[in-house]
């Protein structure tokens, strides 16, 4: 048991670094949507967004727009859509004023 756990750790550590990149390559159809919120995104709001939105199914990247009120979400089109993501924002008490599909996903 002890050796097994150790083996697992060594494996996890050595493969860990390339893990994320590999995961991204596997993903096929990515879409990017912009969500304009009803308020300026304060530092605590960022904590809230970063603590929740990445854990929505299908979300692969997150960024903020220059205007201080939009969040750019990259996600797998086969796993989620803008409607579901909008609901996710509402669940953490943000109102979404506008949803923009910036990049339509294309199959590789």
């Amino acid at each position: 048991m002890r050796k097994l756990t150790l083996l697992f750790i060594i494996m996890a550590l050595s493969t860990g670094m390339g893990f994320a990149q590999k995961e991204q390559r596997r993903q096929k159809r990515q879409e990017v949507a912009e969500f304009r919120l009803n308020e300026d995104i304060c530092s605590n709001c960022k904590r809230k967004i970063e603590g929740n939105i990445p854990f929505e199914k299908g979300v692969t990247a997150l960024a903020y727009g220059d205007d201080g009120t939009t969040v750019k979400v990259t996600y797998r089109a086969d796993k989620t859509d803008t409607l579901k993501l909008r609901k996710a924002f509402e669940k953490i008490k943000f109102e979404v004023l506008e949803t923009n599909l910036v990049e339509k996903g294309q199959a590789e």
């Binding site: 996890a12 860990g16 670094m17 994320a20 990445p54 997150l62």
Partner: peptide
């Protein structure tokens, strides 16, 4: 230390 882009994994050595 490495953290994946959405801070889902972290590796420390």
């Amino acid at each position: 230390s490495y953290q994946t882009p959405l801070r889902k994994w972290q590796f420390d050595l």
